[in-house]
């Protein structure tokens, strides 16, 4: 009986002492954390993709709260306004959402190959081997590095050996842009804008030998465009998205079908 009482009371006393100690320590050593970090983190996508350059979404949230990163520092986050509200700053959301766009239309069927490549399935590796298997030194190598690095599974390789971006899934994080050894991917406004799907800066005859759908720099599109949105430099056409009204005149007249995109009110704007 005596043993029981002493053991229980000893434990009780010890419990009180440790409890007091812990309570004191908790007060004294408490880490003050800005509650906004949790709030901001909750508003971030939570995919921990790392595209922002910080270690995951928590790192991004800390950086935003510390003021070292902008409220729209997350390239994936579609709307930074709630975060701006938490931080108490003004923020105007950009007008258009961006998505990745592969600016090459020369797949297996269109672009000629110089030799058969049978090595590592990686575009940078293919590029190192004599500059890549394709005749065109600007076009897509088709080994699918962009598809494999995409953290959101937004890119798949088509049967024709070209990457296809699903605009719904794409968050414009820009990881694929960095992974492409030929810098073919750019972040352009969503909705499939009218774009020249070619980056070949060679002269027309050389392009024709390399690829059926390459831009030959003929300038027909420049004449067609009512908005003067198209310019040709280095035998390569480029369209200013600010000026383009997606009338589609250039698409129909391009002799190599190098220009593609979604046309609004086809025929109406041209006439």
């Amino acid at each position: 009986m005596n043993t029981l009482v002493s053991a229980v009371s000893l434990l009780a006393v010890l419990g009180v002492i440790f409890g007091l100690g812990l309570a004191l320590a908790a007060r004294k050593l408490a880490v003050e954390e800005d509650p906004r970090i949790d709030e901001v983190e909750a508003l971030l996508p939570g995919a921990n993709c790392g595209a922002c350059g910080y270690p995951g979404c928590r790192g991004m949230a800390e950086a935003i709260v510390n003021g070292t990163a902008a409220v729209n520092g997350c390239p994936v986050n579609k709307d930074a306004t709630p975060i701006a509200k938490v931080m108490g700053v003004e923020f105007a959301a950009p007008q258009k959402r961006l998505v990745a766009k592969v600016r090459c239309g020369g797949g297996k069927a269109e672009a000629k190959e110089r030799f058969t490549y049978a090595g590592v399935r990686d575009c940078a590796a293919a590029q190192q081997l004599l500059g890549g298997p394709k005749v065109c030194e600007f076009g897509c190598l088709g080994e699918g590095t962009c598809a494999s690095v995409c953290p959101f599974d937004a890119i798949t390789m088509s049967e024709n050996g070209l990457p296809v971006v699903e605009e719904e899934k794409c968050t414009a994080c820009g990881i694929c842009v960095k992974s492409c050894p030929r810098q073919l991917i750019a972040l352009l406004p969503a909705g499939d804008p009218v774009t020249v799907l070619c980056l070949n800066k060679n002269k027309g005859p050389e392009v024709r030998q390399a690829c059926q759908v390459g831009c030959i720099g003929c300038g027909i599109c420049v004449k067609q465009c009512q908005q003067n949105a198209i310019t040709v430099t280095d035998y390569l056409a480029s369209i200013d998205p600010e000026l383009c009204t997606a009338c589609g005149a250039c698409i129909t007249k391009c002799p190599t079908k190098a220009i593609k995109g979604k046309v609004e009110e086809l025929g109406k704007a041209v006439s």
């Binding site: 090595g119 590592v120 990686d122 940078a124 590796a125 190192q128 081997l129």
Partner: peptide, 13 residues
């Protein structure tokens, strides 16, 4: 496995 090519690629990166 094309090991040497993989290493060469990674070394360059």
């Amino acid at each position: 496995r094309p090991l040497t090519q993989m290493f060469k690629n990674t070394k360059n990166k």
